[in-house]
Every structure is written in structure tokens, then in C-alpha cells.
Design a protein around this nucleic acid. Sequence first.
DNA 1: CTGATCCTGAGAATGCATTATCATCCTTGC
DNA 2: GCAAGGATGATAATGCATTCTCAGGATCAG
Lengths: 123, 123
Amino acid sequence: MERDTQQRRALWSAIEGAGRPLAPRELLELAQASCPGLGIATVYRALKAWTEDGRLAQVDLPGEPPRWEPTGKGHHHHFHCRACDRVYELEGCPDGLRSMTPEGFSLESHEVVLYGRCSECAG
Amino acid sequence: MERDTQQRRALWSAIEGAGRPLAPRELLELAQASCPGLGIATVYRALKAWTEDGRLAQVDLPGEPPRWEPTGKGHHHHFHCRACDRVYELEGCPDGLRSMTPEGFSLESHEVVLYGRCSECAG
DNA sequence: CTGATCCTGAGAATGCATTATCATCCTTGC
DNA sequence: GCAAGGATGATAATGCATTCTCAGGATCAG
């Protein structure tokens, strides 16, 4: 069974509390605040295990290495800040996707990514 | 100046005629039909040069290595076929993106990717 | 408390896409 | 034609994210 270690507690609370998808490095740095010495290998091990058991979902954005976020948030999209490179969760979904689909194609899912400045960087 | 070689003619006509963004390997294989022996290094050299001089645009899709397409097509999005892995161009643009943007965030651009089966694979 | 076993950190190793190297070849201006 | 220099192909090298290795630590059932 999976053991309850200081490292995993730090990692989980970091990714839980972030409220936005985190890249491995971001997660490492956040978790190191409460667990100094934490190594990147442990981050990857936790991300892999938690993704496999369904607690985390991998978030792929165009031209970016993957980030991870807790599952169970329902359908949503993301906003990528060009200034600080952070990714935020968005609510809502655009209309008219079905009408963009060519004749004969079957639409199964979609991704939407907005780009710009987050409130911290827009000021 | 840039020389007119058999390799570049084959590469350009392949990417021009494809009508969809091509990955380096795809482009290599298409161009090899009219230019046997063509090497992958030449493909990358052409992609880099043509992207720098504005003739090609790099297309990034989530979790995918980049593809390239000729510029000058105006704003559009893409459809990624889950079966054959090919990417198609789409016309049109969804509504309601502005209303998804959180307070204080500035929206500069967006990407939309549709997933499913292309007409060839849906049959 | 104690052992069995899982976990961890550091660094080596891997996988992959992309780029550099270099001897040779091909284009182009003359 | 011909020489000068860009272009090419094969392969080595790079960059990067991710995974593996292994010796030492930590956890937990009993």
C-alpha cells in the first residue's frame, strides 16, 4: 500500500491548494517550502502514481510540457499568462464548436486555451 | 541567397499541397516521393529557414510535437483525428471566449482544438 | 520495538526531437 | 564551362523532460 510520508503530504497539499495546474518544477518549488530537500524524482513519482490512480489529471497545453491538476473539477478550460507563464482554470465553454466541424467528421471533444495577461501581470 | 534545389522544391510542394499542417516526419515522407534520399536534416533546415522568413507557421497542439503550415491563411483552428493522427484546418471561430476571461485578465489570443474522427476514419 | 518493505534523493541513464559537423555535391554568377 | 560558396546526407551531438538505479531512511503491521 501507499505510505504516508512528509514528502507526499507536502506535494499533495501544494497541488491541492494551488487552484491551478502545476508543472513538475512549480510543484517541486511549492512543496519544498514545507519539505526542504524534496527531490524532483519524488515529484515525478507522485505525479505518475496519482495520475494512474485517478487523483490527478495531466493538462497538456500547446507547445508546453505537461502540468497536473486534481481531478473532479468537471469540464473546464485554461488561461495561459504570457508574462508569468502560469496557467489558470476557466469556467464556461464557448459555443459553436459543432458548427466548425467539417462534414463527415465526428466531434468527440475539444480544447480551448486563452492567452494574455493574468490580473497580477496586467496591472 | 537561397538556392533552388530539388530537395526544397519537393519539400515546398509537399507542404503547399498538403492542405494541412505537417510534422517533420510526415513532410519527409511526402517529399521523398519526388525526392528519394531526402534526409531529415534537410527537412528541419527548410522548416527553420521558412519559419524565420515568414513563409511557414509553426502549429503547436497540446501534447504534440510541432507541425508546420504555409502562412497567409488567416485566423483558423485545427481538428486532430484521434485515429490517424492527422491534423486538419478548420474554418470559423467559437463565440463567447471573451466571457470566459476572468475579471482583471486581458485576453490577447486563443487556441481551439477539436478532437474526433476525420471523414476517412469515421466511416 | 522490529523487521519487512516501501520511499527517498542524487545522479546516471534514457528517449525523443532537434541541431551541429563535415566531407561531398550541386547551383549560380561570371 | 568554372570556380566559389551554399546545400545536402549521414551521423554525432545536444537539450530537455522524464525515468531508472541504488544505497540509505522512514513507515507501519504485528
